[in-house]
Write a protein that binds this DNA or RNA. Structure first.
Length: 218
DNA sequence: GCCAACGTTGGC
DNA sequence: GCCAACGTTGGC
């Protein structure tokens, strides 16, 4: 288990909707088309890496400071924390797909300099996010019942800082460039699904971003 | 089951 | 602190 609380996620009032259903992909026949450039085989693409957003600067939400930067994770016992507070179905579903040992980028959002600060790894797969039942918690969800919890969380552990901070502005430049050339970041969720707080990265995207560690900032 | 109104995210 | 993008809600 992880100590700490706090974390980001898309706070949200909520109700059931698009993917109360387990998988969130093609699922239930509701969404059918639209986002299926994927295979006809209904299989989810096997994502191996992730990007998780959190706010490194103080901001009070419902009387509670939601600040949780990578330094805060580092300061946790065992440098491990649960990633609670995610209240968005797509983000939740991605967390449910996470496997122990997989790596994710720790992304700093809603701050002076947004971007990737470090690498974390999944150390515990999805389980019930207890904060949804806690009236005192910022992300309390009165519509979720213990008999049928809506929200999940995973535990993550600090792995290392990236050798340099990789700013969103730089990633965006590569994204624009790659859109023309079909490069690694041409479809990156950070730009195509900007508001998702937990995003999947293909191995190619992850590796490309990692390679930037040893290049000069664009 | 459509869609307008509303609320949140998060870059700038 | 503004506001565009977009997920969610709820009336019909």
């Amino acid at each position: 288990m992880a100590p700490k609380k706090r974390s980001r996620g898309n706070a949200r009032s909520n109700k059931q909707n698009l993917s109360e259903v387990e998988d969130g992909e093609g699922g239930s026949g509701k969404k059918s088309e639209s986002q299926n450039s994927r295979s006809s085989s209904l299989e989810k693409p096997a994502y191996t890496n992730w990007l998780m957003k959190s706010e490194p600067e103080s901001r009070v939400e419902n009387g509670v400071d939601v600040k949780f930067g990578i330094e805060d994770l580092k300061a946790c016992p065992n440098q491990t924390s649960c990633w609670d507070g995610v209240r968005n179905y797509q983000a939740r579903n991605f967390m449910r797909d996470m496997k122990v040992g997989q790596q994710a980028f720790f992304y700093h959002s809603n701050c002076k300099e947004p971007g990737i600060a470090g690498i974390i790894k999944i150390v515990k797969e999805a389980y019930v996010d207890h904060t949804q039942f806690d009236k005192k918690d910022v992300h309390y969800d009165p519509s979720s019942k213990p008999e049928n919890p809506k929200w999940s969380m995973v535990d993550v552990q600090f792995e290392r800082m990236t050798r340099r901070f990789i700013p969103l502005t730089e990633l965006k430049k590569y994204h624009l460039k790659h859109k023309g050339s079909g490069g690694a970041l041409s479809n990156t969720a950070l730009f195509t699904r900007a508001r998702l707080s937990v995003q999947p990265l293909t191995a190619e995207e992850f590796d490309f971003v990692l390679s930037l560690e040893d290049t000069d900032p664009l």
